[in-house]
Design a protein around this nucleic acid. Structure first.
Lengths: 248, 248
DNA sequence: CTACTTACTTAACATAAGTAAGTCAGACGC
DNA sequence: GCGTCTGACTTACTTATGTTAAGTAAGTAG
């Protein structure tokens, strides 16, 4: 058990789906949980393991992934502060994919049963959690389309746009300039490309002055053109007016 | 309103997650719904539309898709009898993807509010619905990995294996021999390939005697080898023992 | 029976992205 | 101060898959 505010980022995110009553608030903050600080590049969940806890990210970055025959890795989603990860794994009983940190990350572990209980004792919270998992699905669908039917430049631009908007909505950074918490290999594993080709493609975006970079920091020089290049329409993120309400 | 048994396939599927009480049964079958018969190749839901109803497939086949810049289509999922589609679209308010039929299909439309109500009045049903959306997500994740990190032959074999197992679990067909309800172009749009390359790849699988075909009917000649070729592990489908209990 | 359409098939050719094999710079341990 | 490591970056070369184009077969409408 630890500082209850570890669940605040999650609470804010759920509140997007509708006002929560004081009782809902109380129940959410009273959720039993264990806060752990995990170093960069560590596993939070291993594929195939039995999951009894769900986790919420308090700070830092993590990703979900699968390994295919031959050993290649596909990254399925990037997660940041407030994200509820692993509800899938814990509710369905076993982990059909792994979760690993990118940076040092604070993770709150919540027992599965406590989540099911709050969902049905507090229907407003339950519905918000349900919608949260549906948005998760929406992002997965966009990624299928991204990887399946777009070329390298479009894929990468799309990924950068998604990352930028989510950073902003989470209140962790600005839309146009931030520190990339991942290597070019990670970017490749997100987009189904090799790190070599990511390098080429990043260089291309830079030459065309859509972005600029120095070491890991990325600046979007022209949001409109990058969004066009990435065939990016933020609707699938279901952020709504979240940028305004959450970032303050 | 129409024949209540239109919801039976859904009920069986939900029951997989745990016994439902007589009261749960009653409430499910009493869900208000409209049954419509939709011809092959028709839209059930258009991308961008406002969704107020969710739908359940009683018979036939449908698919979800997105169109990317340039007009290419990516199929996101194939659906069959008992599948709950469009919960995403209706709960989140608008359709971030379209749904179209492959064959003639009977679809039951259920008002969104009725679904939310039953989920919280009958927590067992609500939990089953929630898990159903989580399995949906699990399949999306596998598709991301399939399209992102596998070659054409592996992708296609994987898709055929998935289709076979789900047909069997749904009780609509056998695992080893069935009628493909889609064209090679559809197969391409599932896997992020062109129909030309699907044709080449199917031919390859046939030459290697993993499958055989005549017109649209597919026979899996060697399940084990096809599953190997497709890097296929059915765990992500979360069918459990469903093959046994549902197909009877 | 004929025209029309749609899906499947094959071939020749083009290219986006992968592979292999490096160099180089910065970070880290000792 | 010297190895070791990791990640960024290049280059030369290869290949899986896309593109274009044609031809065939089957189904349907008139």
């Amino acid at each position: 058990m630890s500082n209850p505010s570890a669940l605040m980022p999650m609470l804010r995110k759920l509140e997007y789906w509708g006002a929560l009553s004081p009782s809902d608030h109380g129940a959410l903050l009273a959720l039993p949980h264990t806060l752990r600080t995990v170093e960069a590049r560590q596993h939070i969940v291993r594929e195939g393991s039995i999951a009894t806890h769900a986790c919420v990210i308090r700070s830092g970055f993590a990703f979900r992934y699968k390994i295919v025959a031959g050993g290649a890795r596909q990254i399925l989603a990037i997660h940041m502060s407030g994200d509820f990860i692993d509800l899938q794994n814990s509710l369905l009983g076993f982990a059909d994919h792994g979760v690993q940190t990118l940076t040092g990350t604070e993770v709150a572990f919540i027992p599965r049963d406590a989540i099911v209980k709050i969902a049905f004792d507090h229907p407003t919270v339950g519905l918000a959690l349900w919608k949260d998992t549906l948005v998760d699905g929406s992002v997965f669908r966009e990624w299928i389309a991204n990887v399946g039917r777009r070329d390298a430049r479009t894929r990468l631009s799309h990924l950068l746009c998604e990352f930028a908007l989510r950073l902003e909505a989470t209140g962790v950074g600005q839309r146009t300039s931030w520190e990339l918490p991942m290597t070019q290999e990670h970017l490749g594993d997100c987009t189904g490309l090799t790190s070599v080709h990511i390098n080429r493609t990043l260089k291309g975006l830079e030459q065309d002055e859509l972005i600029s970079r120095s070491s890991r920091s990325v600046t979007i020089e022209n949001w409109k053109r990058l969004a066009e290049a990435g065939d990016f329409d933020s609707a699938y993120l279901h952020l709504g007016e979240a940028q305004l309400t959450i970032t303050q």
